[in-house]
Design a protein around this nucleic acid. Structure first.
Lengths: 209, 209
DNA sequence: ATGACTTTGTCAACAAATTAACAATTTCGT
DNA sequence: ACGAAATTGTTAATTTGTTGACAAAGTCAT
């Protein structure tokens, strides 16, 4: 029944959430779509349109209550509940992502770090021991793992993703430079650093003209 | 005179480039928009439309020559020339990004790694010494720095970006969780890991319904 | 060499996303 | 308590992006 909301809108929600968090920290109580639009460099119309996909959070003549709207967008995004995360691939990027989520993102909790390299077995990365991939089935059985971050070479990404899904992990944060389509019953979010860098490269070339 | 090409198209180019690279590795000589569309799960029409923004790379009745098209898209993206990159912020993420670009991305060369923490001064990260931020002006003067990756706390991101631009670096790969708008004469490419994770979180919540 | 087949490049139709406009409602100073 | 000002939610208009259709051009087997 709920109409499907476009990913274009979803992509903008975290940004709203961030600006509202900053306003909250600054002790701002209320804000109008117009004021927010000026800060964020988007149209006020878009803000109102976006928010109204989820309900009427504002009030005519008054605007939006910052704390309330922040809370509501947090609920929509699901960041007010805890999500357990494991990281597959304990290379530099894996360790960095593990640390990043741990220290920067409330709502997400790193509970495991895995690799295939036996030299890394039980090595501590801050307070987490690196486990071997064959410990994964037991680990998932005994822990409520919701998200797996894939920070491993692309050759292993697809098979690992399939294994994760069969073990019951249905959300993948994919840093491997490969598309994980054709996998049913899983939500994929890609972070393709190479693509991002190439986009930057294109825009540099353009600017020079 | 050149019509402006939409970022929607640009965002897709790296993916074409990747698929073509794989075809090339597999020794495939030619491919039609139809075959490629099946592999990539996009419409053939979109592929043809996208490519034609940049010129007619194909041939009726034959399709596209894989090597040629790969090369051409590489040129468009600017990955066939070398771009020197420095990384500002030598924390976990900074070190991981430095390593990532170094080992995974031809066309981009990491030539410097900077931080403000004096404890890190001259510490080696693989073959690069961590330099202090006050060495930046001299470094940029003596090296052709095209891109700066910003992997530092958001509190310092804006001022650092301004400094970089004033020193002549006009492209920023921004990993700090802050918007660097209002800065003139600079191309920004954002990698907001938090936003990506929240988007994933939203889509998980949706799937559960 | 011929003709059936393939496939592009491009125009037109369609769909989606963004922006503008404005009635309805609330605020707020007097 | 009143009226001007502010501001939302929502509909309509506009713009942008995607897909479909097909003439034109080239391929390839015979």
């Amino acid at each position: 029944m709920d109409k499907q909301i476009s990913q274009a809108v979803i992509r903008r929600l975290p940004r709203y959430y961030r600006y509202l968090g900053e306003l909250l920290d600054d002790g701002v109580e209320r804000i109008s779509s117009n004021d927010l639009s000026k800060r964020m460099h988007v149209t006020a119309s878009q803000i109102r349109q976006d928010l109204n996909n989820f309900g009427g959070f504002g009030q005519q003549g008054y605007g939006y209550n910052v704390a309330y709207l922040h809370e509501e967008i947090g609920n929509i995004l699901g960041v007010n509940e805890t999500h357990n995360v494991i990281v597959i691939g304990a290379g530099n990027l894996g360790q960095a992502i593990a640390g990043y989520v741990k220290f920067e993102r409330v709502g997400f909790k790193i509970i495991g770090l895995f690799d295939t390299n036996p030299d890394l077995k039980d090595k501590m990365v801050r307070d987490l021991p690196i486990k071997m991939l064959d410990e994964l089935p037991d680990f998932i059985k005994n822990n409520d793992v919701e998200i797996a971050a894939l920070t491993l070479p692309k050759a292993n990404a697809k098979s690992t993703a399939l294994k994760l899904v069969s073990l019951g992990v249905h959300a993948i944060w994919n840093f491997a430079h490969v598309d994980l389509d054709d996998i049913p019953d899983v939500v994929i979010e890609n972070v393709h650093l190479s693509d991002s860098l190439m986009q930057l490269s294109y825009n540099i070339t353009q600017q020079k003209k």
